[in-house]
Design a protein around this nucleic acid. Structure first.
Lengths: 190, 190
DNA sequence: TTCATTTCTTAAACCAGCTTAATTTTTTAT
DNA sequence: ATAAAAAATTAAGCTGGTTTAAGAAATGAA
């Protein structure tokens, strides 16, 4: 049951079988088809989502009505609008499956209860969040030091699995490029 | 003793006086003059730093030998290269005081011990890190939806204290602009 | 107060990456 | 299978922001 989820947690903290049984009480498994939504703009992000299987994107609609993708999540990644989740603010984002997916959701109230009951989970999320900060520091550094062309090439070589699974226009959006420019860059490389 | 530090923690978790006394055993206070370094490129980021008073910047040297500033921290902010701190990797960054500052440092080993002894601190850092993720999601969204001119104007109106305290060329660097362009934008606004 | 250093400004030429618009290819649903 | 919709390509013209190079103004140390 949820093998990715459990082994991901056990990579960072010790958790005996009894605690695992208790932990599972707090989560809601969701089976979703392609293009289904977990969050829509204007709603409060009530849950954080773990991708047991499949792939999610988070995006917002900009002033020219483009879908601007700010994050992807595939297996073993968490997804949430943390600002909305922490402070109960309406979110500007939409969260949507890209493929058929199995998602584990924990809502805010149960999340707090779970952390009180299982201190190892407080530790797990401290580590996960600190790693998320580290990852965003790194990505941020790349945006300072690379041109958009370099950023695109870097992404391609660093995450080939992604490039296989996700349409090109979505990668363009995530990297802050126009689909036309990405097309030009691909042509250039051949 | 360290009033900003203690009240910042008590904003997020309950901490009795005995725990505060224990907590203080783990931290090293540093009094630093203007332009002193806490970290230099190639070193491992051994500590995380809390700004009790003063102001820090984190930057790296890019391929054109520019100092690229990626983060500032003033009172009540934490500063670290988390990737280096978590995984003991040499850091590409330098961390330096902009003004005379009072910094509280916790090194990696003591950090782990402290979290074991004081579970409230594990909770505090989970919250702090989750808020840091929220902040970086927000900043990231701005870079997708704003032009560089808008980003500059937004920063000015959102953080006027910063603009007072920090030289203009450092703000330009942080925002990914040339000092020349910032100068042009200021002229335009008058 | 003065000098040396740091910071800020001005202006012209330049270009990486965007916009617009039309066409082709691929994918999805029935 | 087939039609419709979604995704990718091509190409020309354009612009927001950089680069380069000097000079002016502000600041800190002695």
């Amino acid at each position: 049951m949820y093998p990715n989820f459990i082994s991901h947690i056990r990579k960072y903290v010790k958790l005996d079988d009894h605690s695992v049984a208790r932990l599972i009480q707090y989560i809601s498994p969701l089976k979703l088809k392609r293009k289904e939504f977990l969050l829509k703009e204007g709603q409060i992000c009530q849950s954080i989502y773990f991708v047991e299987k499949g792939c999610l994107r988070m995006f917002f609609i900009d002033d020219k009505l483009n879908e601007q993708i700010t994050q992807f999540a595939l297996e073993n990644w968490w997804m949430a609008d943390h600002f909305s989740f922490l402070d109960n603010k309406p979110s500007p984002y939409l969260i949507q499956t890209i493929e058929k997916s199995e998602i584990l959701a924990i809502n805010k109230t149960l999340f707090e209860e779970m952390l009180r009951e299982l201190p190892q989970m407080e530790r797990y999320f401290r580590i996960i969040m600190q790693r998320a900060v580290a990852a965003s520091q790194l990505r941020n550094k790349f945006t300072y030091e690379m041109s958009k062309e370099e950023f695109y090439q870097h992404f391609n070589t660093s995450f080939p699995e992604f490039v296989q699974r996700v349409p090109q226009y979505m990668i363009a959006s995530y990297l802050g490029l126009t689909p036309q420019y990405v097309s030009e860059l691909r042509k250039k490389k051949l």
